[in-house]
Structures are given as C-alpha cells and as structure tokens.
Design a protein around this nucleic acid. Structure first.
Lengths: 207, 207
DNA sequence: ATAATAAGCGGACCGTAGTCCGTTTAGATG
DNA sequence: CATCTAAACGGACTACGGTCCGCTTATTAT
C-alpha cells in the first residue's frame, strides 16, 4: 500500500501558504495526466484506463503517475474530487431540503435521492475509485456521509444506536448495488429513490 | 472473465448420472488442490494464498488450478461451499426460528443473526470469494438470500416494494462492512445483531 | 552566476490473476 | 492388448497495479 502522507499537496491552495509549493514541472505534468485521463475515459470508459496507457498517453513515465496519485484509486478520486466536493458542500451548507434548514427527515430523504443521482452520473468512476484502496468504509468521504446521516438520525431523536443505524442506511446506497439494480435489473432511479424514502421513513418513524 | 459453463461437474453426484464423469486424475488433483489450499490458508491466511503458490504446493501446473476452479474466487467459493450449503439448508429447511415454522419476523431476525455469525467465522474467505467475480449481487447465494428475505417480508405483509427492500436489508449485511465494524471499530457481533433486529423491526412494523 | 539540495522523473522490475497451446494420458472401443 | 480421442495437464506468456532507485532539473542560497 502507498503512503498517503507522501501525496503532494492539492492544487488550488494559495501558493505561498502551508507546505512547500508544487514545482512547475510537476504541476504541468499533473495537468497533462488529468487531461489524458479524461480523454482516455471518454474514449474507453473508466475500465479501459490503465496506468501504463495513461503514462504513455500523457508522455510521462509510469513512476510519475504513481508519484502524483498514489494509486489507480487515488487518480479516480482526484477525477471525482470536484463533483464530490460540490456534493459535500451541498448537503452540509447548501439550501434545504438537502442542506440545513429542513427537518432531519426531509434532509435524509434528499440525501439519498441526491446520492442516487450522483451514482447514476459518475457510477463507473465511483466504482473504480472504490475498487482499489483498502476498506471502502474508511474513505474520508464515506466517513463524512456516515456522520451526516448519524447527525440527522439524532436530530430526529432516533433511539438505540444511531451510529450503527447510520452505517446500515449508508450501506443501502452502495454504488455497486445501485448500479447493478439499474443496469442489470432495469430498475429506474425513481424507484430506487422511492425505496430509500420508504426505508428512511420506516426507520425513523416513532423514535 | 472465465466461462462458468466450462467448470467441470461437482463431485458427490452419482457417478453414472448426468454429464460425463470426472476422470480419476482430475478428481485426485482436485483433492490435492483443496487439501493444499486449506493448508496454505491455515498457515498464511486467505490473503496469503496465491494461485502460483497453490499450484506449486499441490504439485500441479498452474493451468490445472484454473481449469478446476476458474478463478481465485471460484476456488474460495468451493472452499466455502460446504458451510454455505449448510447455512442455506438451515434457513430453508431447518428448525425454527431460522427455518420454516416461526413467524416471518422472527425468521428475519434469526437470518441476520446467523449471517453475522457466519461472516465472523469465515470472514476472510467470504471476502476473498467476493473480491474477484464481477457483480457480487448476481452470485447464486446472494440471489437466494435476497429471495428469502423478500419472501419473509411478503409473509409479514410488507407493502410497497418487497423486492427492493429485501435488497436493501441484504446490503446491510455486507461482509466487508461487518468485518470492518468488528475489526476496525471494535463493535461486538452482539451489537451488530441488535442493530439488525432493530432495523428489521422498524422496517416491518405496521405493514 | 554558481553551487547545493531536494523534488521530480522514468522505466526496469516485481508479484499476481488469468490465458494459451502443444503435450500427455485416462479410459473407452475393437 | 493396441488404438484412438477427448479430457486433462503444465508452464510459458500476457496484462496490470505497484515499487525502486539512479538520474535530471527546478529552485534557492550564496
């Protein structure tokens, strides 16, 4: 496994602040790699993207790819990070009913609905991002959703074990499951959303 | 991906019946391989078992291993098949409250409890069996549990979409999640079982 | 401008799952 | 027993993710 702490600082941060700034050539290579990755995914799908092909297509060495992103999953995560951050911002700070201001119940329902939409849009990328790194349940984003659901459950006065129940509800939104339902069984996203609403309603109802 | 239909017939069937019987040397090699696999797993854990090492340890060629089991996941599945079949028999034909005879509600609760025990006992094997083959939700065993839960839900008069709800409940018992909870977060299996009971109760209660 | 330093770089290398195909052999047939 | 054929065999081969380490270069200090 790669050492997470060795992954260089994110772009977009104020250049002077924090740890040592990124070298020019490194930044240029990152842009090249991301562009090449998006291109390859557009052409061959996320599964068709291999690290060797990416390196070649971007005109850099393979070592550089891994230095940048740590792993294939890390690359996919980077590709997703923009939309991911957007999603997180929306459910934490955005307008109701997803964001604060609506009752917990409605926020829970919205959360599931939005997550389902998200998976429908970025499904294969999400899958590729999960498939590598050890423990999809320890990923920062997953932890955040878990806490979010837990908080909403507590807000609704959920009784015995909000933390575990939050995990169970989150497990219900597993991307691989959602995609399998839609792609293999032809279930409509609307039906998924309805089922989520039903589940949440039953779980929260009465304590 | 390997062609499932090419996997040879199971042992234990009456020798004369059905498709062509298995050749002696093939049978002998399967036994050797299974014995070697169990040995390796006992020594190094399921993760320590590689197909090359298995082939070497069993004194056969690598091709033979794949001819027998199709894939690493197939091998793991074979290793699990005995206990798996036992589990299936118990919830389908065994004594209540797990088997028929008890109310659907109690059978549901028992099902989760037993599944949790099962994962606690064979966790790493189950994980290894899942990790490879495309679509853990299409595996025969998974389909069976899904149907089982669905039937119990219907028996309890569950309303809108028993099939999807059954899938959601099953997703809650995902082995990777359960193992992560126990091994990473130190949650006790009893607490898992209690949470499952709570979830099922809330879901079924009142329609 | 020059030297010093650390970050970045490339691609050979490794372990693993899975495939391919020429060779061997069990078991059926006469 | 001799022959024949399909199944089984073995191990070289591929593709892939990931690591390693000696070389190069951007940046900073003098």
């Amino acid at each position: 496994m790669s050492d997470v702490s060795s992954i260089p600082p994110r772009p977009g941060l104020p250049a002077g602040a924090g740890a040592a700034a990124e070298r020019r050539d490194a930044a240029r290579n990152r842009e090249r790699l991301l562009a090449a990755a998006r291109e390859l995914i557009a052409d061959c799908g996320a599964e068709g993207l291999t690290m060797d092909r990416l390196a070649e297509h971007a005109g850099v060495g393979k070592g550089t790819v891994f230095r940048r992103f740590g792993s294939r999953a890390g690359l996919m995560l980077t590709l997703l990070s923009e939309s991911e951050a957007d999603f997180q911002a929306r459910f934490m700070f955005g307008p109701p009913p997803l964001g604060p201001g609506a009752p917990g119940m409605e926020r829970l329902i919205s959360f599931g609905a939005e997550r389902i939409s998200y998976v429908m849009e970025f499904g294969d990328l999400v899958l590729a991002a999960e498939h590598a790194s050890r423990g999809r349940f320890e990923a920062p984003a997953a932890v955040l959703w878990h806490r979010h659901i837990e908080i909403l459950l507590r807000e609704e006065g959920f009784g015995p074990d909000p933390w575990l129940m939050a995990g169970s509800l989150a497990a219900t939104l597993d991307p691989e499951r959602l995609l399998s339902l839609v792609k293999v069984h032809g279930v409509s996203p609307e039906r998924l959303t309805a089922s989520w609403r039903d589940l949440v309603t039953r779980v929260v109802r009465g304590a």
